[in-house]
Design a protein around this nucleic acid. Structure first.
Lengths: 282, 282
DNA sequence: CGCGAGATTGACTCGGGTCAATAGTAGTGG
DNA sequence: CCACTACTATTGACCCGAGTCAATCTCGCG
């Protein structure tokens, strides 16, 4: 990631640029008001306040640039207005562990609140437009506008729940199931952003996906190939076509022992009923 | 877990009951003020307010009881004043996935804020004393007392960071390393609570540890036995004695491929330099 | 004293990590 | 425009760590 490859995927074939980004020009920069921020976060806010006065500045990052690094002093949160990123942890040997792939509507930097220093590193996987939310300003505002405060709590809680399910996935699912769910999750997020959930480009390398899923890049590659052969998806480099979302969603395999905590666990049908027999390579 | 085994580990040999629990009697129940709550959370609060008026009620749970269940309407957070618990996710087949082992000073229920329904289930592993923090009340207070608000954000952020490192661990470490770190983490937490970090009782089964670490109970058991033989720890059922904390902290093994993202990764010495050659079963 | 949950161990299997060779793609510069 | 380089992705061969299955042991409890 130390090579900020100047990608030119701004207007790719399968993924056009965002339908409509928030923000207006002012003194040569983009700014957004509170409502736009809330909309971006999918938080339904009966925003009582006309907050044209409350404007939040945007910042652009180019592919490969870091938004913040580990240990850096924390003072602002970010919301992704457009573009794709990854957040990573760096272990004591300099190895990256991908934690998330933030995209439009996601919040960055929350892990910095606790110690006042970011606990992770955020890197742009494509050119990005982020909205700056100075934390001080935000909490001050929160005291006035209850909705905003709840928004904050809500976003943090949501993030927590997301990480919980991630832990559940890493702790309990097989490689195939992880990759399958990863694809479904991506598709859903693209759909939520107004893009196609059936055909999209991965913004990250196999290596990054593997790190994110606790797998090696080879396993990721092999699994994608397998899904392709089986007809669940189509793969061509980073272009993914979803063919059987249902099957992907319910794909299992190896409810790994820890599983049968109490369930009768009928040894049959490891693959959920999504029609045909495909990955039934039990 | 459906059998609330009435354990009697209240005054075990290696773990006496808490040194001094917070709370005072009032109308037959325990209550704590804001200061005690903050102390419990290790949040240094120059609490400007004399808040003898702001009292938070305690509730007791017996071993096996559920504090909250998945899907249950959310309205209060909990702080552990004494006792041990586990939080779990239940997948679509009824299988438990342990997410955390909360103990004194930890907060429960944060995952319920987002959807207003708890996303996980909390079960008492021993008799517990919890402090109730009605969420409404808390946010209202937060608007008045800035420290409290920061406390809230801080605790949530801390929780987030904890989960992040959990993800990192699940995604990158070998079974041995996971178990080793788990033990160290427990020791540290016990130390922070004023207990011995050298000799303590596990409050959870091998199965629960395995679920938490993404391993099977057999692997956990075997790993503990191995550590025992090697002299890193002593094991007798649930009584653990830490013999070489340093070695445990730095134990590696298999920086699993994904690891050597960029590091020169000298192929030698998988075990960090903690003195002697022990687990050098490389 | 016997029951049942939990823990320990052994034997066997296999999913996925490791190593390695090949090939597609993109950016660079002559 | 095309070689040159550097990634990134795909595949195959091999093998080991950890899961699976199963037998035994221990301990606390009724």
């Amino acid at each position: 990631m130390s090579t900020p490859v100047p990608e030119s995927r701004n207007a790719s074939s399968t993924m056009h640029t965002s339908p409509m980004e928030a923000g207006r020009q002012r003194q040569g920069r983009l700014w957004s008001n509170l409502k736009e921020v809330c909309d971006l976060l999918h938080i339904p806010t009966a925003m009582s306040v006309n907050s044209e006065e409350l404007l939040f500045q945007h910042v652009q990052f180019k592919t490969g640039q870091r938004v913040h690094t580990i240990g850096q002093a924390f003072d602002t949160l970010y919301i992704v207005n457009s573009g794709f990123l990854k957040t990573v942890l760096i272990d004591e040997f300099g190895n990256e562990q991908v934690l998330s792939f933030p995209m439009k509507g996601d919040m960055l930097g929350v892990d910095g609140i606790h110690t006042r220093h970011y606990a992770s590193e955020a890197v742009a996987l494509s050119d990005c437009d982020l909205i700056l939310l100075p934390f001080k300003k935000l909490t001050a505002l929160g005291r006035v506008h209850t909705e905003l405060e709840n928004l904050m709590y809500g976003v943090m809680s949501r993030e927590l729940v997301r990480e919980q399910s991630m832990i559940g996935m890493l702790g309990a699912l097989s490689a195939e199931a992880r990759v399958a769910r990863f694809l479904v999750s991506l598709a859903d997020r693209f759909a939520a952003m107004g893009y196609s959930s059936k055909l999209f480009n991965l913004r990250m390398t196999r290596h990054e996906i593997g790190s994110y899923l606790g797998l090696t890049l080879e396993t990721v590659s092999r699994t994608l190939s397998a899904f392709n052969e089986i007809g669940l998806i189509t793969v061509d480099q980073r272009t993914i076509g979803i063919k059987d979302a249902e099957a992907l969603k319910t794909l299992r395999r190896l409810p790994p022992s820890r599983s049968r905590t109490k369930s009768p666990a009928k040894p049959k049908s490891d693959l959920a009923p999504s029609g045909d027999a495909l990955a039934t390579t039990i």
